[in-house]
């Protein structure tokens, strides 16, 4: 039983290793959606950060 468990454990890792290259295609490509949503959010945050920085610079100059 213990041996079986170890084999299961190992094969679990092996399986993951095989699927590693394809992470983004696993689970019906849901990770693509997450990646896209993250890119859009991060993009918007960076843009807002830039605007805020410009405002701060202007306040310093005054």
């Amino acid at each position: 039983m213990i041996i079986e468990m170890i084999i299961n454990f190992l094969s679990f890792f092996l399986n993951i290793q095989v699927e590693m290259a394809d992470t983004f295609r696993s689970d019906g490509k849901i990770y693509v959606v997450i990646l896209v949503a993250l890119i859009i959010l991060i993009g918007i945050f960076l843009y807002l950060y830039r605007i805020e920085k410009k405002i701060n610079d202007m306040n310093k100059n005054k």
């Binding site: 689970d27 490509k29 849901i30 693509v32 959606v33 896209v36 859009i40």
Partner: peptide, 15 residues
């Protein structure tokens, strides 16, 4: 082909 990634529609097309 599309699978779950059809959900990208909600975030990509509004751009």
């Amino acid at each position: 082909i599309l699978n779950e990634s059809i959900r990208v529609l909600y975030f990509h097309v509004p751009m």
